[in-house]
């Protein structure tokens, strides 16, 4: 891994974060103002003026923009207009709830999706394959919000087994995790199956068998690593979908995470909180894609990082 490549990657990462943050900065300010949320509809013009002056909203937008980035570079992400405390603290206090949901969903999505995708390919054109793919097709055909509501209807309203909303106990995790997992696992199963079918009939698989490897060994040592490349690509995109899924799941299940905070803050134009969340999301996307680039190199020596820098 040469230094030029790393510098280029880091530069691109900062460029991505800057573009995303700037875009959100402008869109938010051009499409709304927190004044009415805080002062109410009947606030006098003097009160509105004082509020704007207090939060620097009366400055031209380019001045606000430069001030925002100057503060960010000094580690100051601003204060939540609605909560009156540090925007970073407000977001970080919600982060554990979202991260715990995402981590469990990610583990389940990968393990279930990839496992059933591999199984379907190994039992290609059999009843097992057809059953797995039928279930998978049903899974990714259901919109997340419909799935969530259906789960609540069954397990909370009719059976009374699980709480419908909240995050206080482990029972509260079951339905949000299932909602976030079922659709995504189905997608991964479909992709994994296709990727596996691409490689299972390649000449190198026949060579491996001719060299005396068992079918299982050939699958583990040659098929799965080669099939993993397109699946890993999908994982990079999937992180974005995971965040969107968290927003939906958190809304359905009144889950007190970053997704709901984002919706609330956008609605009330709590600018600094939205900016922190957007930066957080773009940083995690950038880091994820960097990790995926590294995994590529490991999976396929032809795509080496050193060569990528040439």
């Amino acid at each position: 891994m040469n230094s030029a490549y790393i510098i280029r990657k880091i530069f691109r990462a900062f460029l991505t974060i800057w573009i995303v943050t700037s875009f959100v900065f402008l869109i938010l300010r051009l499409s709304g103002d927190p004044t009415v949320s805080v002062l109410g509809l009947e606030a006098s013009p003097e009160a509105v003026e004082a509020f704007h002056a207090k939060w620097g909203l009366d400055d031209p937008i380019h001045v606000q923009y430069l001030r925002f980035f100057a503060n960010v570079f000094q580690g100051d992400m601003g204060v939540s207009i609605l909560e009156g405390r540090s925007a970073l603290t407000a977001v970080l206090s919600r982060l554990p709830a979202t991260v715990s949901l995402m981590v469990i969903s990610t583990i389940l999505t990968f393990s279930v999706g990839i496992f059933f995708g591999v199984m379907a390919s190994l039992y290609h054109n059999t009843h097992k394959d057809q059953i797995i793919m039928t279930v998978a097709a049903s899974g990714f055909s259901i919109p997340t919000f419909v799935l969530g509501v259906v789960l609540v209807l069954i397990f909370s309203v009719n059976l009374g087994w699980l709480p419908s909303t909240g995050s206080a106990t482990w029972k509260h995790y079951i339905m949000p995790v299932l909602t976030m997992t079922i659709v995504d696992a189905a997608v991964f199963a479909r992709f994994t199956r296709s990727a596996m079918l691409e490689v299972l009939y390649q000449p190198y698989m026949k060579t491996a068998l001719a060299k005396g490897m068992s079918w299982g060994q050939a699958v583990r040592r040659h098929a799965i690593p080669n099939a993993a490349i397109p699946v890993v690509t999908i994982m990079g995109f999937w992180i974005g979908a995971l965040i969107a899924g968290a927003v939906i799941a958190e809304s359905i299940f009144a889950w007190p995470g970053v997704g709901r905070l984002l919706v609330y803050s956008v609605k009330h134009r709590d600018y600094n909180v939205v900016q922190v969340i957007v930066m957080l999301i773009s940083v995690s996307m950038v880091i994820t894609n960097l990790i995926i680039d590294i995994i590529y190199g490991k999976l396929d020596p032809r795509v080496s990082i050193d060569r990528g820098a040439e």
Binding site: V149, V152, L153, S156, V157, G160, P163, S164, T165, G166, S251, I252, F253, A254, V263
Partner: peptide, 18 residues
């Protein structure tokens, strides 16, 4: 006072006893 902005989850939460 639990914040549940959408009506469907509010109704389901009521009917499930939450």
């Amino acid at each position: 006072y639990v914040v549940v902005p959408d009506m469907s989850p509010r109704i389901m939460g009521l009917l499930s006893g939450d």
